[in-house]
Design a binder for these strands. Structure first.
Lengths: 222, 222
DNA sequence: AATTATTTTTAGATAAACCTAAATTAAGGC
DNA sequence: GCCTTAATTTAGGTTTATCTAAAAATAATT
């Protein structure tokens, strides 16, 4: 129970490094962190030194950054807080799917274990957030995440929508229009060779969706 | 709708200045701010200059600080956020009376109007927080607050407990023991001249409470 | 392989929010 | 009304998190 206290900035960097690392497997470049956080590379280098000293990441000059075991644990707690707040905002405060991220980004930095544990209980220990992303439990354990997109299905195959990767408003409006949400069943009717578009059966209606969109909708094959 | 964005520090100073000013009426000293925030007077002077420049307070060198009209409005919004979160923590997350303050102190700085308005609605527009303090509405309007304490009652007079001023755990435990909460009826049976203690009838039981305790429990006379 | 381009790091600066020590002003006691 | 004390402010310093500009290392291209 090494309860390290991090600043808001440190938390944001660590979370970003975790997210860029593909669950801790990949080495993350200084530039990629810089881009995602909109902070100059020079500043990123500074923070990398700081997090290295705290043993949350490993870093070799000019060779990129790897998140440590401990770093992963801490990052998952930040992600846990973020996603629990997203559930709260969506289910209890009636926020839209595309409005929750920004506010959760602030709320996640309020670090009280009692707050998060009671919130978790209050929300009845949700397993996924409104985008379908899994919520780590108190111990940092995370459920399996579907990595298959609609675009990975073959003709006549079926799937259940499990996760939405994109977070912006336009995408949200499209999903709304198509009545796609977590749990919706989809069946591939046809694949258009020309640009990779898909003809998909959703709610008993055939619709054409672009390859890009299809890639952003993860599913469980059935 | 001049929506000034303040840092967490600035918000804390402004809130403290408002609280020390008796609803904006009194002039606040640098030292009193220093004491309440546990920050050196020299640092307080720095921040006073900053808030002055933003026209949230008026300040004359060596002569103290007065909160401005605009400062009051901003302060009341911070207080609104704080108290709404207290209601949430107490009613929904089952926090104890003495545990809510600290966490609300962090949550109050998450400044999203949508968040606060929806939270307000979700909590059914509460008028008071768990300590009995009034919650300013969206426009900064605050209900009248009882300024009479149990210690102000005369023998045989009755009151309804409306507000608890003290926030610490020991005091909370005492109230618990005496079964005093917001809404409890009290009747003065006797006043002990020696130290100002009071003999009070609470839940059909006579109990002796010290003058200090009696001063921390505000009531509505009936 | 040499040169160019890109990435990363270093060096030095800035703003915010603190601090300590010293100087200034106001207030209280006699 | 002077003098001591207390309150307040100024001056200068520190830490955190950022920046720009320049240097160093790595990667890409011819």
């Amino acid at each position: 129970m090494t309860n390290i206290i991090l600043s808001k900035s440190e938390e944001n960097y660590l979370k970003s490094i975790y997210n860029l690392s593909d669950s801790g497997n990949k080495i993350v470049t200084t530039n990629s962190i810089s881009k995602i956080l909109n902070i100059e590379p020079a500043s990123v280098t500074d923070m990398i030194k700081k997090l290295s000293k705290k043993k949350l990441i490993y870093h070799e000059k000019y060779k990129g950054t790897k998140i440590s075991k401990n770093g992963i644990i801490v990052a998952l707690q930040i992600i846990r807080r973020h996603r629990l707040w997203e559930v709260f905002l969506y289910e209890k405060l009636n926020f839209n799917w595309d409005e929750i991220h920004e506010v959760a980004e602030e709320l996640e930095h309020v670090s009280s274990d009692q707050l998060i544990d009671n919130l978790d209980k209050y929300l009845k220990y949700p397993k996924i957030d409104p985008h379908g992303d899994p919520i780590p439990n108190k111990l940092g354990e995370v459920d399996f995440v579907d990595k298959i997109s609609i675009s990975d299905l073959k003709i006549k195959e079926k799937g259940i929508v499990s996760r939405i990767v994109n977070e912006d408003e336009g995408f949200f409006n499209l999903l709304n229009k198509l009545k796609i949400e977590i749990g919706t069943e989809v069946t591939i009717l046809d694949k258009i060779d020309y640009d990779g578009s898909l003809d998909v059966l959703i709610n008993n209606k055939s619709v054409i969706i672009s390859k890009e969109i299809a890639e952003n909708i993860k599913i469980t094959k059935i």
